[in-house]
Design a protein around this nucleic acid. Structure first.
Length: 887
RNA sequence: GGACAGUUAGCUCAGUUGGUGGAGCAUCGGUCUUACACACCGAGGGUCACAGGUUCAAGUCCUGUACUGUCCACCA
């Protein structure tokens, strides 16, 4: 007996050992000059503040499956790990910590605050990395990256300066989304729109000369002091006469023009619109086209500015109340309605964002987008393809990307203003003096870059760009990017733009967008809802492999995953099953590996069958993974191991093992071979349990024990593909199941051995059954087995027909005769129904003449089989009825 | 308003090119059969959302409807 394994699989200890082993041995650190087709993936860098959540677990598991599989296929695999500095999030976390000490970042000052963030990162930044390790990810830890690393920061500066020089980065006044709490600008897609209930106020604006008036509708009366026009649709008969006249803004008395623009929706509200260019995105655009005055009345803290006249100093909320009251008092409040409308919120802190005009830096995304669009699908394919249109649409309607943020933690913008000449200097290295006037007094821009700016460079910055590295030469572009569709725009599209612009190549050949993990009710998991499943807890409870298998098995393309703890618990059973099947194998193997047996000419139907099935599963899992059908790969492995290898094959070789000698030796070799290959197939999904078993299995003479992580994908064995032999197993299995069913339904104890009579259809079938009688005897638990082509069966028998073979179990003593009668009738009714169905088809002239000949032939055969079964069963039933009459 | 997905057994989901509707869990009955009770054996359970159409044949292809969900854009 070879090494024994503990009775149940205990993941904790096993996982810890293998994690340490792989890290110490640098198993997943590739050599750029090693042979093999390159294969690379960059990790979607988790926030350094983050804790591993179930979405990461899914993402990392799928990537790991791909990487381990690629390694098995002989590829030179690089998986780069790393974290993202997550500007706003991290700053918020550290500010909260400071608040507990009663301090603000302003108290510390910029430099001390940033030092403080680095300290925080040193203390807590490894947490998320440890959690990645817990998942068993085969990343190269020697190439760990962080977006604020020196190298990556250099890449950021280089990109910024080059884009600036190419006029693809510019600075300008623009209306942006301002988070009054985070005190920073947000990019368009960092704003989340949510429906909320508000009001729509209809307010009368009088003409300057008092001759007429116009009623406008607004949801934000506090912006009235910033109005610089009233706008109507040019074709609107109601207002045509007013266009070109001058209206008076209530409260502040400003004289503003009434303009016409087809942007206005005549159906909405009153069909007349007040225009506040500084506090609304659309009004901003109107202001530009119509050369309106730009008056800012709300400051960055949400307080009314000087320009708001009588309302200056009020908060915007207080201003709203006061201005509405004033207008009402003046008799100009025409109507107040309830209105459901979307309001923008900060995606980090959920504060309502305020459109705000300020000087910001922008990337001319409109100029970079066309290349990113054109690259798909020629250079980069997106899986599943349903995201194609979304990707195109986003790029087609893209606006320039606001990249400056008014926070401290991040890549500071490499731009300086000269105190002497006032010119702007943009440079990779910090300048010591102004290149224009020589002045030494330079002031660096206070802002930092949007976190996604550095993330956009990730595929090449992590490989050492802008230096000319071996990594870049070998592994750029990457093979596939695996990520959630929720960051298709934030991240994927921007990496496409930057990769194409700076590397001249799309950063990945494939993009696989996986699903979102939801709870059992289909809701998005979130901390605030408290419905999240904590992967760390699941690993602790059920083992990492169980979690990984669950996620893989549910990762069907383009579909969200509804996860619950029960499912993970369920798949733990599978991991345990792998373990126990291996224990069984080990109990039946010797210390040394079994002596090789030629497999393509092997005797024994069960061996031929399992080897044939193994070939099929090898091909199937490989193809499924190549096509990102993770669930199919997992399902194929699951089914083969459990329903075929364990339920049938292991049971069938038990007698072989007892028989000893050559029969045993053959069974040992096939068992050893199939199990080893199966472990390799499953390893990408469940690395720990397979590694542990692999290490305990005997090794072929002259070979050294190896790490399963380095084992190649099992080669195809074409000689073992034997569909005919495999099909013959169906007869054996069918007869066994028939006997088991008879026992179960007639309440005969499964342990009770019965006599079995078989009447095969012909000599060939009889020979097959005869040759495999030991399988029938063992698995059907038979006392005796007799078979004859012409059989006189006892009248009191339970019976069934399997592939034409009559299966007869003589009933003795106190058996449930009525039960057998019910059983037969039910079976006959089913046959009858099927026969009617087939005959209907065959009697259809159109079917016979138009369907392919093979299909028609198959139907005829099926009909014949059904009729044959029915005839035989009816005869058996007739005898049974006689027996009952006699009995 | 635009785009995309989903609707199949009590639950969660598979269903590849149209050709006899599957799995896991759950349920019911029976078993300690020398790896596994985290197991084994067996059983029940479905007008494939609805309505049309194409076809000899539709869960599968086409059109429409209903419901659910997601994303984008927002009309002040």
């Amino acid at each position: 007996m070879a090494d024994t394994l503990p009775k149940g699989y205990e993941p904790k200890d096993v996982e810890d050992r293998w994690r340490a082993h792989w890290e110490q041995e640098k198993t997943f650190t590739p050599d750029p000059s090693a042979p093999g087709e390159p294969f690379s993936i960059v990790i979607p860098p988790p926030n350094v503040t983050g804790a591993l959540h179930i979405g990461h677990a899914l993402n990392l598991t799928l990537i790991d499956v791909l990487c381990r599989h690629a390694r098995q296929k002989g590829k030179n695999v690089l998986w780069v790990p790393g974290t993202d500095h997550a500007g706003i999030s991290t700053q918020n976390v550290v500010e909260r910590a400071l608040a507990k000490e009663g301090k603000t970042r302003q108290d510390l000052g910029r430099e001390a605050f940033i030092d403080r963030v680095w300290e925080w990162r040193a203390d807590y930044g490894h947490r998320i990395l440890d959690q990645i390790k817990a998942l068993g990810c085969s990343v190269d830890w020697t190439r760990l990256r962080f977006t604020m690393d020196e190298g990556l920061s250099k890449a950021v500066r280089k990109v910024f300066v080059q884009l600036y020089d190419e006029s693809l980065i510019y600075r300008g006044d623009y209306i942006i989304n301002w988070c009054p709490r985070c005190h920073t600008a947000l990019a368009d897609d960092e704003v989340e729109h949510e429906d909320s209930r508000g009001h729509l106020w209809s307010i009368r604006y009088h003409l300057e000369d008092g001759s007429d008036s116009v009623v406008v509708a607004t949801t934000r009366p506090e912006t009235i002091p910033g109005d610089t026009a009233v706008c109507v649709h040019p074709d609107d008969e109601r207002y045509r006469h007013l266009v070109g006249k001058t209206a008076v803004v209530p409260g502040v008395g400003r004289r503003v023009p009434i303009i016409a623009d087809s942007y206005v929706d005549r159906e909405f509200g009153t069909g007349a619109l007040k225009v506040t260019p500084c506090h609304d995105h659309n009004d901003w655009a109107l202001g530009r086209t119509h050369n309106l005055e730009f008056v800012q009345v709300i400051d960055e803290n949400g307080v009314m500015k000087e320009a708001a006249g009588p309302y200056a100093g009020l908060t915007k909320q207080a201003c709203r109340e006061k201005i509405v009251a004033d207008i009402e008092a003046a008799g100009d409040l025409v109507k107040v309605e309830e209105l459901q409308h979307a309001v923008g919120h900060c995606y980090r802190c959920h504060t309502v964002v305020e459109p705000h005009v300020s000087a910001q830096w922008f990337v001319a995304a409109t100029k970079l987008a066309p290349a990113a669009r054109a690259a798909v699908p020629e250079l980069t394919r997106i899986f599943p393809e349903t995201w194609l249109k979304t990707y195109y649409h986003w790029l087609d309607t893209i606006r320039d990307w606001c990249i400056s943020r008014q926070i401290w933690w991040g890549h500071r913008i490499p731009a300086w203003t000269c105190a002497g000449c006032g010119k702007l200097i943009v440079a990779v290295e910090d300048p010591s003096q102004c290149p224009h006037c020589g002045c030494r007094e330079l002031r660096q821009d206070e802002d930092v870059l949007d976190t996604w700016f550095s993330s956009a460079l990730w595929p090449f910055s992590t490989m050492g760009w802008p230096d000319d590295t071996k990594e870049l030469a070998r592994w750029y572009p990457t093979n596939v990017l695996v990520t959630g569709f929720d960051i298709l725009f934030f991240w994927v599209a921007r990496m496409m733009m930057m990769g194409l612009h700076f590397m001249g190549k799309a950063p990945f050949a494939h993009v696989y967008l996986h699903a979102l993990v939801r709870d059992a009710e289909g809701h998005k998991m979130s901390k605030s809802k408290g419905n999240g499943i904590d992967p760390r807890e699941m690993i602790e409870k059920y083992g990492c492999d169980a979690l990984r298998f669950t996620l893989t098995a549910f990762a069907a393309m383009g579909r969200d995953i509804r996860l619950s703890e029960e499912r993970i618990e369920g798949y733990r059973h599978f991991v345990n099953k792998v373990w126990n099947a291996s224990r069984f194998a080990m109990m039946n193997l010797d210390e040394a590996a079994p002596a090789p047996v030629r497999l393509d000419t092997i005797e024994g139907l069960h061996h031929q069958w399992i080897l044939h099935r193994l070939e099929a599963v090898k091909a199937e899992m490989d193809r499924a993974l190549e096509e990102y059908r993770f669930n199919d790969a997992a399902q194929a492995g699951y089914k083969f191991l459990w329903s075929e290898f364990c339920d049938w094959y292991l049971e069938l070789i038990k007698p072989d093992m007892q028989a000893g000698q050559e029969r045993k030796a053959t069974a040992q070799y096939v068992l050893w071979t199939v199990l080893r290959e199966l472990l390799v197939l499953l390893h990408p999904i469940i690395p720990f349990v397979t590694a542990e078993i692999w290490a305990a299995l005997p090794v072929a003479a002259g070979e050294k024990a190896t790490d399963i992580a380095l084992e190649p994908y099992p080669a195809a064995r074409p000689g073992c593909v034997r569909p005919d032999e495999a099909a013959r197993m169906e007869l054996i299995q069918g007869v066994i199941v028939a006997v088991r069913t008879i026992k179960a339904e007639l309440n005969i104890s499964p342990a009770r051995k019965v006599h079995l009579l078989l009447q095969p259809v012909d000599a060939v079938q009889m020979a097959l059954l005869e040759a495999n009688r030991h399988m029938l005897e063992t698995l059907a638990r038979l006392e005796t087995l007799d078979m004859q082509l012409d059989l006189e069966a006892p009248k009191a028998s339970a019976s069934a027909v399997v592939l034409g073979c009559q299966v007869i179990v003589p009933l003795r003593g106190t058996v449930d005769l009525a039960g057998e009668m019910t059983r037969l009738d039910k079976e006959l009714a089913k046959l009858e129904k099927d026969i009617i169905g087939v005959n209907k088809k065959l009697q259809n002239e159109n079917f016979v003449s138009r369907a392919p000949a093979t299909v028609v032939e198959a139907e005829r055969e099926r009909a014949a089989r059904l009729v044959d079964s029915k005839t035989k069963l009816e005869a058996l039933r007739a005898r049974f009825v006689e027996a009952m009459a006699e009995g």
